[in-house]
């Protein structure tokens, strides 16, 4: 991993098209400005982690459980917002 030290107001360039600016440093937080072309996806790491965790969780859905909710949905007895109903 490349490690660079930057001061407030200084930037980092990644290739020709990506610029990362240090906009603010306060307490334990750093505010970054990111300029990147539209084909580069920029997301917080946690978003990827959440989707990864959710994929993992979803891979455990059982046919039995899905059959139940599918049946309930088809007969219009779908439980909404977690409310229990029969």
């Amino acid at each position: 991993m490349l490690i660079l030290t930057r001061k407030l107001g200084e930037n980092i360039r990644i290739g020709d098209k990506i610029k990362i600016s240090i906009l603010d440093v306060k307490g334990g937080q750093v505010k970054l400005g990111i300029e990147a072309p539209p084909h580069v996806a920029v997301h917080r790491e946690e978003i990827y982690e959440r989707i990864r965790d959710e994929n993992q969780r979803a891979s455990g859905v059982s046919p039995r459980g899905l059959r139940e909710v599918a049946n309930a949905f088809r007969v219009g007895k779908h439980k909404r917002q977690g409310r229990e109903g029969s």
Binding site: E54, R57, A58, G65, L66, E68, V69, H78, Q81, G82
Partner: peptide, 10 residues
């Protein structure tokens, strides 16, 4: 979308 079920909640 990918679906998950937790305690009967889809």
């Amino acid at each position: 979308v990918i679906v998950s079920i937790d305690n009967g909640q889809v």
